[in-house]
Design a protein around this nucleic acid. Sequence first.
DNA 1: ATAATATAGTTGACGTCATCAACTATATTA
DNA 2: TAATATAGTTGATGACGTCAACTATATTAT
Lengths: 149, 149
Amino acid sequence: MEKRIPDIYNSLQELSWQFGDHGFNGECCGDLSLVEYMALKKILNTRSIPIQEIGIALNFTKSGATRIIDRLEQKGYVLREQSPVDGRVCCVTVTPRGVEIMSKIIEKYTKYVQDILEEFKPEQIEQIGNSLEMLVKAVQKNKPFDSSF
Amino acid sequence: MEKRIPDIYNSLQELSWQFGDHGFNGECCGDLSLVEYMALKKILNTRSIPIQEIGIALNFTKSGATRIIDRLEQKGYVLREQSPVDGRVCCVTVTPRGVEIMSKIIEKYTKYVQDILEEFKPEQIEQIGNSLEMLVKAVQKNKPFDSSF
DNA sequence: ATAATATAGTTGACGTCATCAACTATATTA
DNA sequence: TAATATAGTTGATGACGTCAACTATATTAT
């Protein structure tokens, strides 16, 4: 067992808490919850996506996904349209207002990250960027997580 | 604006989602929610802590903290005791069962992180560890996060 | 000493949210 | 064309955190 591993786990957890639902004094993303923000981001990145896909991507049931889209639609950030290809499918797209709120949110967070990293040298920032990239890639390989207890 | 910053933000968010409430198929920590796990960890690290402190540390109201402790107590992982120093204060301590579940959870996650990092070289792991440590320290300096929209 | 105030914690009512199971509507297959 | 499969929605439900009001203990002022 690599000695550094437990430290890495702890750091990851600490950071995740800060960037998760309870960080930033619970003030996540304007009038969006973290979940809504993530859904909106997913929709934006795919341009048009069936509701179920959103649920799968974010680990919600399809009814959960329906409810998330309900909220985003009420707030005016997305639109439902019936798919021209398959009448059962409900393509969700982002409205201009949705695009706008997203860019504002991303701007705030980016600003925050920049403040956080203010005192680091460019090569340190480079190193941090590389490390996080490696981690993300490693995580996306979807190693099984044994959740039995 | 450093060019790397938006990437860093994205990576952080990606990792946070994975390590947050919805990652790992929602299978966080045995019979503990992420919030309960974080509270238990906090209690363990301080040995004995007033309920309100837990709320402050994790960004909950004091009644929210009360409810979290209720759940942990029902599950047998913590105990409430009146403080000998101040009768208003309710010192929370971890039971042996609490210690046990914590070490199991940490073991699982550490194992997971190890699997994730399996293919990296020791110096890469070292670099990742250092980067995360820098990030955690930077975050803990508690820069203000502008949450206005 | 005692009355007034402050603080820690609890509780009932409430709103939010995700899930389950049942349902509708459309598509595919036999 | 009948049977089955799939996408999405909905009502009922349970988990959870907050607010405001409350209890109990401690501190401060007179």
